[in-house]
Each structure stands twice: as C-alpha cells, then as structure tokens.
C-alpha cells in the first residue's frame, strides 16, 4: 500500500515527533509511506472562518499533491474530516472536480481509523506503562466516526490501562480561531474538560488531534498541573512518547 502522509500544519510546526511516531506506525503496518515535500495546510482555518476562496485554492493544491496515492493518512481527525467531508462540498459547482475530491476523500483516513480498520495493525511498537484517559475530538468523532479505533489499538498494549473520563465526547473548547476570539468561553470549556481528566487520576490524557491537546495542556499547565502528560495517540502507540 502506497500511503501519502499529510503531517498537518500543527504537527509540522508544534510537535514534529507526532509526525515521526505516525510514520513508525504506518511502517509497522507494512505501508510504503511517502511525504510530499511541498505540503502545508489543509485550508480549514480559512474555510471555517468564511474564507471559501482560500480554502478552494488549498484544496486544489492538496489534490495535486495527493491524488496519486492508494491512501492518504493524517494524524488528525479534524483535517481528515476537512478532506473527506468538506472538500467535495467546496466544489459542488463543478461536478467533475467534486467527484475527484469525493474519490480522494474516500481514500483519506485519520491515523487510528486507518491503522485499525484498513491496515488492521494488531501489534504496535509502543511499550507505554500507566493509566491513560482518552479525549474524543469532535470532528474525528462526529464526521469520521472515530471512537473505538484508538481504544482498540490502545487495548493491544499490555501496560496501558484506559480509565474513561465522564463526557469524553464533549468539546474541549478549542475550535480553532474560536479559542482566540472567545478566549474566556473557550478557557471555561477547557477547564471543564481538565476537571474531568483530573478526576480519572490518569497519568496521561491522550487524544488524536493536536489542536485539542495543546488547548488541554495549556489549561492544565496554567492551573498548576505540571505532571499529567498530554500525548497524541500516535506517540503512545509508537513508543515515541519519551
């Protein structure tokens, strides 16, 4: 399987280790992974802020770079949702392009969804020891139905104990530019999430979207929690979390 890997702008800039962790997992699953050199951003910030035009331009750039792969995989449910669900919608006025985007979208997967359902990875390289709790990021959950996939993969790790938090599927308050425009409200939502995390007593909060994880980590640290680890699921599964 020839897989095009889209690292996402947040992982590229903020936590490149998640990118390498993802590559390790894809290779463990037997994939031939290619990282197109000129990839940047999927266009979601503009799209969700009402800037339809710039999102179209970025979607076309994405199509040119990724259309030839058997599969496209991303370590983010939010960006994968953009490509699978929203790219075809952007080009409704152009049936031919829309169909090409729909075809690309059907081959595009969030990382844990791909590893579990498509590549059927049964043994992961990671050796994490400890209790974790899982935050379900909104787009992955509601646009792509990612819920049991990361849990199934974590369940293959003998050292990992999953302690579910209450309301794991409630938004953490990130919401991209929402977290900047409505900082106070966003912080309150993050606070609610952090309380649920803390109540589990887990060693680490794990999730599949770096935006949410930065939001959660930012609030935990500001409120004086410097010990709960905040990890992307790829880091835990790959053993690249150290």
């Amino acid at each position: 399987m020839r897989v095009g890997f889209f690292v996402t702008c947040l992982v590229d800039t903020m936590r490149p280790g998640i990118g390498f962790a993802s590559l390790k997992l894809l290779e463990a699953a037997g994939c031939e992974v290619v990282v197109p050199e000129h990839q940047t951003c999927c266009g979601q910030p503009g799209y969700n802020s009402g800037d339809h035009k710039s999102a179209e331009a970025m979607a076309l750039k994405f199509l040119a770079e990724f259309e030839t792969f058997d599969y496209v995989v991303l370590p983010s449910g939010s960006c994968a949702g953009m490509i699978r669900v929203h790219y075809p919608d952007l080009f409704k006025h152009d049936p031919e392009l829309s169909a090409r985007f729909a075809a690309l979208g059907q081959r595009t997967y969030e990382l844990t969804d791909f590893l579990h359902r498509i590549a059927r990875l049964e043994k992961v390289p990671g050796t994490f020891q400890g209790t974790v709790t899982y935050h379900d990021s909104c787009s992955g959950l509601r646009e792509l139905d990612v819920y049991r996939q990361p849990r199934a993969l974590l369940a293959t790790m003998p050292g990992v104990k999953l302690q579910e938090m209450v309301e794991s599927t409630t938004c953490c308050g990130f919401g991209g530019t929402f977290s900047l425009k409505y900082g106070e409200l966003s912080t309150r939502m993050a606070d609610n999430k952090c309380q649920h995390i803390t109540a589990t007593g887990a060693d680490a909060i794990v999730g599949g979207d770096l935006g949410c994880l930065l939001n959660i980590e930012g609030r935990l640290r500001r409120t004086g929690d410097h010990t709960t680890r905040v990890l992307h699921v790829a880091e835990v599964l790959s053993g690249e979390e150290k």
Binding site: T13, P16, E37, S179, Y182, E184, A190, R221
Partner: peptide, 17 residues
C-alpha cells in the same frame, strides 16, 4: 484570548518537514 487563561506549550524548535 488564548494566553489569558492558558499557557501555550512551546514547539520543539524544528519543523517536521
């Protein structure tokens, strides 16, 4: 809006690419 209520975890200092 972000940093009034949250710290921002610093990046690693090199990009993935």
């Amino acid at each position: 809006g972000w940093s009034d209520g949250r710290d921002f975890p610093a990046p690693a200092g090199r990009t993935f690419r």
